[in-house]
């Protein structure tokens, strides 16, 4: 049901864009107003969320150590897994963010009783995630060619690399396939793996379907419906958008508006969803803190003033016993006391 709803929602969005953009005058809404609005929500929301997170302090140093900490000279320190300096933290975070190291850690011992299935199954999630995220990143970077005039040389290099296999005409980009495959794989995993299906919410299916639809419309435009769209006009609009002087030329094509509208939805949805993990991963205290808490004091800004049950109070209660058994005391016993300790 949850995944079906995601499909319905995306289909509804597609219909809105398709029908909407046919109405005269509406291209200005879909081509100019909504993209600006979506970008504003995205940037504003993104910054708002990060600031909100930043507003809450990190009262305690709660790093998780995944290896030997720095201690004695002859004990080998695992610099990446239990970082002691800022540089080591940066290296840890870099690998975490760039290679999804924690997911890769998902290894299993090779000691098996059954002859079948070995430990590769535990790397699937890592693999799917890598395919999905890197394809997405490349697709976004390649789109920069639409907004930049002249197109920087490095984008052309990336495009060349991406289309290295020279399949089809125009050349298919690996990352287009990768993005589609990533969506399908992650989506199927949610459906098929029982415990993941049990925990999945609409919020988990919807972005995948949305991104899938964006990729499909994009691919349709590039490979199949090239004649339906006017790439010159699109570039003109894109450059116009970034230079704050947007113009919509003649007919651009409904498929373009669908694509753009879905992207707008994704942008606007981003700051209010789990997609914020993109920013959160940088700020996770268990990963971005140094494991040097005994060497350098971490300060809690709201450290409450709480004093222990005092030694004085403790000695007052037990002085007699302490004196009797020869434990040193601060204050000797008074000459004589009549009160007996109450039992029970």
């Amino acid at each position: 049901m949850k995944y079906a709803f995601s499909f319905l929602a995306v289909i509804a969005l597609i219909l809105i864009a398709w029908l909407g953009s046919q109405i005269p005058g509406m291209p200005y809404l879909f081509g100019i107003a909504l993209p600006y609005l979506a970008m504003m929500i995205f940037l504003g929301g993104f910054v708002y969320r990060v600031v909100q997170w930043g507003k809450s302090p990190v009262p305690f140093s709660i790093q998780t150590t995944c290896g030997q900490g720095k201690s004695l000279d002859f004990i080998k320190h695992d610099r990446l897994e239990a970082p002691d300096t800022t540089a080591e933290v940066v290296a840890r975070m870099f690998l975490e963010i760039v290679t999804f190291r924690s997911l890769f850690r998902n290894t299993k011992s090779e000691l098996h009783d059954g002859p079948k299935i070995t430990y590769e199954s535990s790397k699937w999630l890592w693999l799917f995630a890598i395919i999905f995220h890197y394809s997405f990143l490349m697709v976004v970077i390649r789109h920069m060619r639409l907004f930049l005039d002249p197109v920087p040389f490095w984008i052309a290099w990336l495009e060349f690399g991406d289309g290295l296999f020279q399949v089809g005409a125009p050349t298919w980009y690996m990352t287009d396939i990768g993005l589609l495959a990533g969506c399908v794989l992650l989506f199927s995993r949610r459906l098929i793996t029982r415990h993941v299906r049990f925990i999945s919410l609409v919020n988990d299916y919807f972005p995948l379907v949305l991104i899938f639809a964006i990729a499909v419309t994009g691919i349709l435009m590039r490979y199949f419906l090239r004649t339906e769209i006017d790439i010159v006009n699109i570039k003109q609009l894109a450059v116009g958008l970034v230079t704050f002087s947007p113009v919509i030329g003649t007919e651009i094509g409904a498929i373009f508006y669908i694509h753009l509208f879905l992207v707008c939805v994704l942008l606007a949805y981003f700051p209010f969803s789990k997609l914020m993990h993109f920013a959160g991963v940088f700020m996770s205290p268990t990963r971005n803190m140094k494991n040097n808490t005994r060497a350098v004091r971490h300060v809690n800004p709201w450290n409450p003033k709480i004093i222990p049950h005092s030694y004085g109070g403790y000695e007052d209660e037990f002085r007699e016993f302490m004196v009797d058994s020869g434990i040193p005391v601060e204050k000797e016993l008074p000459p004589k006391k009549d009160e007996e300790k109450d039992e029970e």
Partner: peptide, 9 residues
């Protein structure tokens, strides 16, 4: 589902 699939003791 999980108990069945994962064969690592």
């Amino acid at each position: 589902g999980f108990f069945l699939k994962e064969r690592d003791k």
